[in-house]
Nucleic acid binder design. Structure first.
Lengths: 240, 240
DNA sequence: TCAAAAGTGTTCCTGGTACACCCATGC
DNA sequence: GCATGGGTGTACCAGGAACACTTTTGA
């Protein structure tokens, strides 16, 4: 476009009744190479809670849905896109933001940590992965939001195949077993785990093996999303 | 107080950025004597959707949480209080309200329909129970909200003991079996159902029987909430 | 040759499912 | 005495849990 458009930008917006502000916050889970569960935090540059760590998030624009706002903030603050994202819960305690009445709609995301190193993030935003059992003090009520998300993840991973979202596309049976052990916090029997997950027929056995490992290479598998949708239609229900 | 306080009531509220309006809506489920599942709807007195049926709900005040707003609207519009109430989902489609950008946080409630006849409701509000398989056309996106609530109820009733909220405090085993058959939409085997639910040790066998029935009177039971909390603590998980 | 993880079957037991008849009560 | 729902036990089968050794590979 060679012409700019001049628009009148109002400096303020007026309503008959007071309105709370609406934000979204995202709890982004990732599984690192050592198989500890991690979450992304952002260091706040501005008050309130300046310098403290917080969940990525921000205000919802009038021309976007909550989910669109979550995707936008995720991309802006962490560079993450195209991942599993689901609404978690809406938090509305009266004093959760010291400045103003703010209601926040929390989302949680599952990403394959190996694909995102958070180094190339824009401007001066400081984002980092933290192990979930060693979090710093969080701003606002973000600890409560995080705990709600962790409980949701632990509950949901047992009866919906969302765990695969934390792994690379191609993974070994041991990887997925360790994932379940990490998230659920208990050891599982190797033979029983393999029997059960293979019997579901949701894993595509690939003709590929692990490389660069200092021991016998394991076979790679892939989650068969199409098959899952088809089975779910027929009343099948995932359970581990 | 013998003196009134004069306060300046502003006629408007101004913000630097535009804000969506925030409402809550409630999907109230009840089970009637003929054991069909019902939901409460309110007939709208004002545009938009004037005359159409809608879920009870309204704007969230600045000095209340979302849950408080839900309780308030529930009481004002239906006379219901002290029931099971849980947050469902937050809906934010851009055009869900034709007048303005409105985001709504939906709640769902489970009530013992026998206790609420909706006759004594305040002023001119027209509230009524509708069988869920015979709903009228609903205002806004309330059909989608209702369906989300029904799916949640169907899912949750299988792994948390919330079904009892739809029954009177004292109930027969047949009542709860019919409840499950109604909500899940399939017949269950009487002997197996009784074995399973009694084995959980969550039902208190009372020394009372049904009265005024034209057949052998059934024993009454009561859900043991304290026992459930205790068992849950120890890792027990309800499942039917 | 050693270390490290991959891969593989069987036995036992629990819990799910299928199934039919007598009992108590009010009309 | 009949209609209506209440109440009860057993046999079979499937799936979950416990359990240990051999194989492959790279260092």
């Amino acid at each position: 476009m060679s012409f700019s458009t001049l628009v009148f930008l109002p400096m303020s917006y007026t309503y008959k009744f007071p309105r709370p502000g609406i934000t979204i916050d995202c709890v982004v889970f990732g599984l690192d190479e050592l198989d500890s569960l991690k979450v992304i935090l952002i260091q706040r540059k501005l008050p309130p809670f300046q310098g403290q760590w917080a969940l990525p998030g921000g205000f919802v624009h009038l021309d976007e849905t909550l989910e669109e706002a979550a995707w936008r903030e995720l991309l802006e603050e962490t560079g993450i896109q195209d991942v599993f994202l689901e609404q978690l819960y809406t938090f509305s305690a009266l004093n959760r933001d010291p400045r103003d009445r703010i209601i926040t709609v929390a989302y949680y995301a599952l990403v394959n940590l190996g694909e995102y190193h958070l180094k190339a993030t824009t401007d001066a935003i400081d984002a980092a992965w933290f192990a979930i059992d060693n979090l710093p003090k969080l701003a606002f009520d973000h600890l409560e939001i995080f705990q709600t998300a962790l409980n949701r993840l632990r509950g949901k991973i047992r009866y919906e195949p969302i765990g695969f979202e934390l792994l690379p596309k191609k993974f070994t049976l041991s990887q997925i077993q360790k994932l379940y052990e990490t998230v659920l916090g208990k050891k599982l029997d190797k033979r029983n785990f393999r029997k059960k997950i293979l019997k579901m027929n949701l894993l595509l056995e690939l003709d590929e093996m692990q490389t660069d490992v200092a021991h016998r290479a394991a076979r790679l598998y892939q989650f068969d999303e199409a098959k899952y949708q088809q089975l779910k239609q027929q009343g099948f229900s995932f359970e581990l």
